[in-house]
Design a protein around this nucleic acid. Sequence first.
DNA 1: ACTCGTAGTGAGTGATCAGTCACTGAAAGG
DNA 2: CCTTTCAGTGACTGATCACTCACTACGAGT
Lengths: 187, 187
Amino acid sequence: MPATRTLSTAEERSDALVRAAVRVFAGAGFHATPTTAVAAEAGISTAYAFKLFPTKVDLFVAAVDACYDRIVDTLRIAVGPDVRGRAALDAMGSAYAALIADRTLLMLQVHALAATSETRIRDAVRRGVARTVEVAQDLTGAPAHEIQDFLAVGQLCHLLTAIDAFALDDEWATTVTEGIEHLPTHP
Amino acid sequence: MPATRTLSTAEERSDALVRAAVRVFAGAGFHATPTTAVAAEAGISTAYAFKLFPTKVDLFVAAVDACYDRIVDTLRIAVGPDVRGRAALDAMGSAYAALIADRTLLMLQVHALAATSETRIRDAVRRGVARTVEVAQDLTGAPAHEIQDFLAVGQLCHLLTAIDAFALDDEWATTVTEGIEHLPTHP
DNA sequence: ACTCGTAGTGAGTGATCAGTCACTGAAAGG
DNA sequence: CCTTTCAGTGACTGATCACTCACTACGAGT
């Protein structure tokens, strides 16, 4: 293949489109984001976006899967081979906090959860949570209640970040954010 | 006022509309639910619904506020005057689990969180969380980290219920649901 | 009886958006 | 070259939806 190729492969375009979908859907969610906005962010026409992903749901599901790909990879490399149990879970927690610091993956999860009335989106979230739990179990060997804690604290971070509680200094906000890994506040 | 009155007061209609809004928005969320569907559920015309609540956001915010009204009331009556600390928080947890058993208030919270890019909705969620935290602090006197736990477990229940994890018997699902107050599965 | 404020609605309208269609053009193999 | 395949798009369309307007009707006070 010559270096002067102007057309991309469909696979390259699909990847770019999914990356754009993660960013754009994270902003306003499934129903509030037009497919046109995703295509524009990826720099391709709406018509071609629909050729690559026949429906908007297909594209959203691909974005959710990509989101959990990144999460699972991050958790996997966070913990050294000799670390187990709670220490390993803590390492995963820190890695996760760093990963979602830019809010993109965090908000995409929030929006995916809200779109679970669409069966295929619910299934994508199930797959993602399943993979997360499995990697946490396999690499830390921690008991069920600690895995639950790990997930629960993650969900709490989602809530607090979505409402930007870290930026507030009312008493309730400081109570509920104190000691939690600080995530950057909304611009 | 005679018993044969056929017109309602605007206040009665508003209340009915907000109750309908809680139910209907809980189903598909803010952006996927037309105002017409809420008005129909309440048995009034779309035009009148817009006279009572000038915008869809106004109606949604009223629904979110009503949702947290019910939550806060439930938490308040759950704990006896002499119970404090972790025991009191556990009582609140059980009362909360019973309250959200029909998924309506639970899913409305999930959808509200996903709609926080609208400032007024974000503020409504903030108000709700603030009230929840305040009532938990005042009535239990529990330390901050226990209040955080309380919130975190609630959020975990939202996640697990939204993806109907309680209905699954894959290993990850049983791991992550075991010991958590069982909520009914989706029909 | 009359009038005025308020409950209540049918029938729109303009904008947005998911998805389609008919088409252009690049480039690899022969 | 020339044909075939695949990347890529502009210009629609039909449906949906937030919100409006012009209007009817009820009933309380006088």
